[in-house]
Every structure is written in structure tokens, then in C-alpha cells.
Computed example of a mutant assay.
Amino acid sequence: MSDDMNPSRRTLLTGGAAVAATMAASAAAANSMDPVEAPSAVNPDGRFAGKVIAVTGGNSGIGAATVRAFAMEGGQVVFGARRDELGRQVEAEIREAGGDVTWVQTDVRDPAQVERFVNATTDTYGRLDVLFNNAGIFMTPALIEDIAIENFDDMMLTNANGVFYGMKYAIPVMKAQGNGVIVNMASVAAHRGFPNTAHYNASKHAVLGLTRAGAQLAKDNIRVTSISPLAVDTPMLEESFEFQGLTYEGMADFFVTPRIMDPNEMAEGILFLASDAATAFNGMDFDATGGQLA
């Protein structure tokens, strides 16, 4: 580094106010304790201008933040989830901000509904450039012997089968058009064996298996990745913490980055994986745990 790019301590203390201010601003921008804010306006020439994106589980939490982020970056977004009223509300809010979004009520446990969702995307916009398989649930924590069989089955149907169905119906579309990107929602639980969430662990380990199997699609110009958050400020996390008698402040002390993550910063990671800047990322999981898996 040149002297011009590496000011001395004396320079900073005696007249280097402008340099110091620049360095302080840079440090603030890179501060791991200050997550990014949600975009507020559409950039018609953004990273996803002309791209068509489909998002499952897009009516709240990370899904809703990602739908908005894609739309603000110029993308045309179709999103689905189970709760119709909430989905229509998210659709209206993003459209009011200028985003191009379409809501399609979808239950990913049903393969016919996932196929309909993919078809609705291509029928509306003519192609499918990015699929974000985000739909997921988090059941009441319990030890293996105490997990109800129907709860285990529902967890796997939603978190694992839903990802499989999305990939199954999106891949032929992407092969036919000659390119595409799939991003799957994994979790820190895909890398750990937490004793009181075996059903959730199993579903997210399955997501990693599907992601790794998808690496072979590179020959068809299709990339498949996944992302693993830790604790993100979503309604699902709030419900889980309330049930267990936990608080955000208390749990943050146990994390390498001592805070709860924000949906908007997860959205930024997902947009990176889906973008043309991530062409070397394929068949791998993106650690978004703030260092918890280090």
C-alpha cells in the first residue's frame, strides 16, 4: 500500500480530518454490528433488470425481504406461500414502491401446487432466471422420542420435499432456456445435530444434499447453491424464542457475532448468490451465520 493510502497517525491527528472521516465512514459501512437497510426505491437498471425470479415462502421474514430486494433491483418477481392475505399485502406494498411482483398462493407440500407456481411464473413473464426455494417451517423443539410423527412428516414435506419439488419443476425450464440459478434455504442446523430439533436438522441436511447433487447442472449453465443463516429476526424465530422462554438479548451473547441477524442482510446474501457476480459458486452452501460455523 502506498503512503497516500496509508496515512500516518500524526497525519490523522494533525489536519487529517478529511482522511479520518473517510476511514471512519468506511469502517462504519463494514461494521458487522450494523446490518444493511431495506431498499426503498426501484433501480430499473439494477442487478436483476430483465431477470425473472420466483420465490417460495415469500410472504414474511427472509422471503418477503428477498422478494422486495429482487424487485428493487429491477427484477420481475413471482412469489408464493400458504397465507393468501399476507401475500397480497406484501404484493401491494412492493407494487406501491414501484416493484414488479406477482403473488401466487402456493403450498410447497403439494407438488401439483409447486408445478403450478413455476408454470405461473413462465406464463406471466416467459422465463425463469432465478428460483429461491425459501419456504420452511420450524416446529416446537422436542427430543427425538417426543417428536410426533405427523410433525416430523410435515417438517420434511415443507422444508425438504418443497425444495425438491421446486428444483424438479424449475430445472427443465432452465435447461430449455439455457441458463438459470437456484438458491435453496438451508440453516446452521444443516451443519449441527441440535438434540431438540432433530426434525428440523434432518430437513435442512436434506437441503444440503439436494444442493450438492445440483452441482452437476453446471454443464447445463445452471448453478445451485444454498445459504445457511443462524438466528434471523423473523416471526418464526420470535415464535420459537417465545415458546422456549428465550430473549434476543440473552441468546445474542452466545453468538460469535453477538446479535440477531436481520432479514435484509440475508436478502443481500441471496441476491449475491443469484447474481452474475457469483459464477464460481456452485453446489456449495453459503455460511451466513456471522462466524458461528467457523
Results as ranks from 00 to 15, higher is better:
Y125P: 07
N264A: 13
A38Y: 02
L131P: 04
S8E: 01
G250I: 09
I94C: 02
A71M: 08
A21S: 12
V256Y: 11
A176F: 03
G80S: 11
M155N: 10
D153R: 12
S2M: 09
D3L: 12
I222D: 00
A218W: 01
G178W: 00
E85T: 15
E93W: 01
D84Q: 10
Y248A: 14
G50W: 08
R212V: 13
A277V: 03
F79N: 05
A267E: 04
V36S: 11
D4C: 09
A65G: 04
T247S: 14
G291W: 02
V130G: 00
V104A: 13
A202Y: 05
I147L: 10
V114Q: 02
M155V: 07
S40N: 15
N201E: 04
I171N: 01
P39D: 06
S2E: 13
V55F: 07
I94L: 06
A215I: 01
N196K: 13
A120S: 13
L217S: 00
L246W: 13
K219D: 04
R223Q: 00
A142L: 11
A49T: 13
A112E: 11
M139W: 05
G180H: 00
Q76F: 08
G136R: 07
A274N: 09
E242V: 11
A277H: 12
T11R: 15
P263A: 03
G46V: 03
M236R: 04
T14E: 14
S60I: 09
R88H: 15
L293I: 11
L157F: 11
N196T: 12
P35T: 05
A277F: 12
T197N: 14
A170H: 01
L246E: 15
A38H: 02
D3P: 12
A28C: 11
K175T: 01
Y165A: 00
A18G: 14
I144V: 13
V104W: 02
A120T: 10
L86Y: 08
G162H: 01
G290I: 06
A41C: 04
D84G: 03
P111C: 08
L128Y: 01
P7N: 08
A176K: 12
T289L: 05
Y169I: 04
F243K: 14
L237Q: 06
F70K: 03
S226L: 03
H191N: 08
M72V: 06
D287P: 04
N201T: 09
S26D: 14
E91T: 11
R223P: 00
N221I: 00
R109I: 10
R9F: 13
G16K: 00
M72I: 06
N196L: 06
N221T: 01
G75S: 02
W103D: 03
A186K: 02
D154W: 10
A288E: 12
M156W: 08
F194W: 15
I53K: 11
G291Q: 07
A252C: 07
D285K: 05
D233K: 13
A189G: 08
K168R: 15
T124I: 07
A198I: 12
F117I: 05
S187N: 03
F243N: 10
D287L: 08
S203A: 15
P263H: 02
F194Q: 14
A54L: 10
T124N: 09
P258L: 05
D262K: 12
I94Y: 06
A17M: 04
M174R: 00
A30G: 10
A25P: 00
T225N: 14
K175Q: 04
R192P: 00
M266I: 15
I227G: 02
A49V: 01
